[in-house]
Every structure is written in C-alpha cells, then in structure tokens.
C-alpha cells in the first residue's frame, strides 16, 4: 500500500540551514547535509530544501549543496527557491535532486511548467502554491506569501496540473507558523478536485495535526519544519501515532 509521506523542510541560505535547529547531536547545526542524513536515518520519507538566499552565487552554491546531499542521503529530496528556467532545473537534477519545486516563476510564466514537464517528466516537477484565505476566497500569494495575485488557489492548482505538474505543495499562509493545524478544508478540496498528489504545509504543531491533514485534509504527504528541527515531534513517534490511527506509513 502506498504510504503517506512525512517531509521535513530545511530552509537554506548561502548553503547553510537558517532556521534555528535544536539538534544537540549535530556537530555543525548549520550543515544541511548532516541534518539531512539525520532525518533520513530517523525515518523521514523525503526532504525539501528551500533556498532563500539572494546572492549572485546562489545558483552555484545550491547546485553544490545538492551534489553533497545526493552523495550522503539515500532518500528522495526536492529543491526549491528561485528556480526559474530549464537550465536551473537541469543542473539540479543532474547533481542528484529528485524533484524541483517552483513557485513564483510558475505564476509569472505558467508555460515554464509545460517546458519543464516535457523535458524532465512530470514526476520531478512540484509546483508550490502559497495561498491566503481572504473574505472566503483562497488567493494565491507570491514572495513567501507577501504579495497577493489575482489567482484563485483551486483554479490555479487545476491549471498547474493540466500544464504537467507532478505534485502540488500547498502552504496556507493563514496557518503557517501558527502551530494550530493544517488548512484541512482547502486541502480536502484540492485533493478531491485534482488527480496528482498534494503535500500539506503550514500549521503543524502536534501529532494530531498530521493525523487530521491525512484523515480530514486527504493529503498525500505533510511537510513541516520547526516541529522537527526543535524536536517537538520525533518522526518515529509521529509515524507510530499515525499508524495507530490507521494511516499507512513506512515504519
């Protein structure tokens, strides 16, 4: 049976993890490779690296990081942040990334999804969508959720699927950082209206929130950062809890 995936997300700046991490057993808490290896060994199903650097060298730094991660880590990983061309994706996949995630660049140039899917296959193209519920409507936002667009979450998600995305990473800006749970109603709607996997993001605070994302939100995977980085939730404990709730997981 296909299992539900648990995905820790690592924010990267200039090749280093940024969000404070609370791993006492880490030699170098800023080293994404070491952190990734620990997550892989502790039962994470997949990893996401989100690059937030804005320097001239960021492309090369990120490509180098991908190569170092691929060398050490034996589970799949996705790379996102500032990816805007076929060439960007080519180098990241060549260096060992399994998937790339695009966000703002897809909104600005929707045909990019088609070009990437036809060159590399849908299976490695994740489209990340940040959306905020405003007056009863889910509005797609850019730049880490700061800039609103005209796009409706569900319409955009359907377009993204049609253009060849293999998966959608949906972050609710209303929930992100609150630790009050995922946006399950919107997730469930996405999951029922689309035919590609949906990753839930934003709002994880407790193990129950993950159960809800899968049982109520019908998500195929759930992504979180701080609850894992600060060891508020151990991945193995989480998976036991999910299994107790009859949610299929890899344990």
């Amino acid at each position: 049976m296909l299992t539900k995936r648990i995905i820790p997300c690592l924010d990267i700046k200039n090749g280093r993890t940024v969000k404070g991490v609370n791993f006492v057993d880490l030699r170098d808490a800023g080293d994404p490779v070491e952190l990734a290896a620990i997550y892989a060994a502790s039962g994470a199903d997949e990893l996401v690296f989100l690059d937030i650097s804005a320097t001239e060298e960021r492309r090369r730094t990120l490509a180098d990081l991908v190569l170092r991660v691929a060398e050490k880590v034996n589970i799949p990983f996705t790379v996102g942040g500032g990816i805007s061309s076929v060439e960007d994706v080519d180098i990241l996949l060549q260096n060992g990334a399994d998937k790339v995630s695009i966000n703002s660049s897809a909104v600005k140039d929707p045909d990019l999804i088609n070009r990437l899917a036809s060159k590399f296959g849908s299976q490695c193209i994740t489209v990340a969508i940040d959306a905020k519920l405003i007056d009863g409507k889910w509005i797609v936002h850019l730049v880490g959720g700061k800039v609103p667009t005209e796009l409706d979450l569900f319409e955009w998600a359907k377009e993204v699927e049609k253009r060849g995305a293999g998966e959608i990473l949906f972050t609710s800006m209303n929930n992100d950082g609150t630790k009050n749970g995922f946006a399950n109603e919107a997730l469930a709607k996405l999951s029922s209206e689309l035919n590609i996997p949906i990753i839930a993001s934003g709002g994880a605070g407790t193990m129950q929130h993950f159960c809800d994302a899968f049982l109520v939100g019908k998500a195929d995977a759930a992504l979180a950062a701080s609850v894992f980085h600060f060891k508020e939730i151990e991945i193995n404990d989480l998976k036991i809890e999910l299994r107790n709730n009859k949610i299929p997981v890899r344990l």
């Binding site: 049976m1 296909l2 299992t3 995936r5 299976q123 293999g166 998966e167 590609i196 996997p197 195929d220």
Partner: peptide, 27 residues
C-alpha cells in the same frame, strides 16, 4: 488513482537473489 504514484510502497512475493535478506512487505 492519483498519477504519478509518488512515495513509498511495499513489495511482496519476492524471489531471486537480488531480494536476498529483504523482508516481505519492505518499503
């Protein structure tokens, strides 16, 4: 079904030496 299938699934009815020491229903 959701297509592509992405993620961890189980393998069973394993035969031949390439699955030596791999347990049934491994992910």
């Amino acid at each position: 079904l959701k297509v592509p299938q992405i993620g961890w699934n189980q393998i069973t009815n394993l035969s031949t030496p390439i699955f030596s020491e791999i347990k049934e229903l491994e992910y």
